[in-house]
Design a protein around this nucleic acid. Structure first.
Lengths: 195, 195
DNA sequence: CTTTTGTTTAACAAATTTGTCAAACTAAAA
DNA sequence: TTTTAGTTTGACAAATTTGTTAAACAAAAG
């Protein structure tokens, strides 16, 4: 079937992505998605057949997009420290845009590990962890289980975004102030990682 | 209305708590909750009138319980370093039992910040942050925005539990191995915080 | 033993959400 | 302009989830 491309299909997908990942409405109904997109609800079925298919499509594209972005950083041939600085920058930028994306991916993985865990990234992870170990031997990094290093790094980057609403209240900050705090974190994380 | 206490009400609440916080099934239906508890679905309505009320009750109790546990640690009059060691221990123990609790609290807060953000904990947070600043002045802690210190601390403790399914796959670990990794983190976080 | 009262159950009703279909619409092709 | 084919819409049907009710049941009180 050829297409006239009114942009509606993409609009629905983008709107769903925004609801899911930017607003955290992981269980938005087709009606809510359609309303947010300003289109008739039936169009969700017309373009995606079912809510589940739309769901899976948005999820898969988001996951793959995110993973690709990170892979580029990991596979780049820059010096380790620069790579990490780059990773922090990219990761925080992406996460600021879609704070709930990782949470969504995790929730989804948890719901069905079998499906999403299959084509695992063992090799790439292992490769990076070897790089980490090299740096530890060189003395650039504090010696520890490289898996702990990975956990530290990603925790420091990701978690403040997941808990943003909580911390805005606790610290009495508005959105803008919190964004500044997150911007400042780039340098801070770098310094925490490389003492 | 007096009660004969067959333990059913508590059973339903406990089961819901387990589904929500231990298994991450944040949107379990009344049927799923009843099945998991091994009781008739109608009993959910009998004891709690509606799903929402059960939901709110479990949520509130869980939140308050967790906050109380943390408050005890924060308000204890031990030396700072010991307090932190204690916090790490308690926090990780609680989180290991109910990995999804915080995520649940955050999601819920995000859905309705007005309700849950009201009776804020400004004072207690401020008090602890002053304590943190003292330690920075004494040189025990690396100098930084105390809010960043808080973010670091809680990120390092909480996030590896939220992302457990993901990391088990990435690292190729089973539940037991991951639990050991989490146990080892206690000391590691302590060392990361106090370099 | 009978009554009382709280508990449990199944059947039913209501509400919500999702999916289907035919008709109306619109822009490009003939 | 008419035709064609993709798009949009509203009405309807199906599926899922939730809430209610009356009757069955069980344990304590009389």
């Amino acid at each position: 079937m050829s297409t006239r491309d009114t942009g509606t299909e993409q609009l629905i997908k983008d709107t769903a992505k925004h609801l899911f990942f930017a607003e955290g409405k992981l269980h938005a109904t087709t009606q809510e998605i359609a309303d947010a997109a300003g289109v008739n609800r039936t169009l969700v079925n017309y373009y995606f057949r079912s809510r589940d298919i739309l769901f899976d499509q948005v999820f898969t594209e988001a996951q793959e997009g995110f993973v690709c972005t990170l892979d580029e950083v990991f596979e780049s041939k820059m010096p380790f420290k620069e790579k990490i600085r780059n990773l922090i920058s990219v990761f925080i930028k992406e996460t600021a845009q879609y704070p709930f994306r990782q949470l969504f991916i995790i929730t989804e993985m948890n719901r069905n590990v079998d499906i999403h865990g299959k084509k695992s990234r063992h090799k790439k992870v292992k490769l990076f962890m070897e790089e980490v170990e090299d740096e530890m031997n060189k003395g650039t990094l504090k010696k520890m289980d490289p898996r702990q290093f990975m956990l530290n790094l990603f925790s420091l980057m990701a978690h403040p975004f997941l808990t943003a609403p909580l911390h805005k209240v606790l610290f009495g900050m508005n959105d803008e102030e919190y964004a500044t705090l997150m911007e400042d974190r780039k340098q801070l994380i770098y310094e925490t990682i490389f003492p």
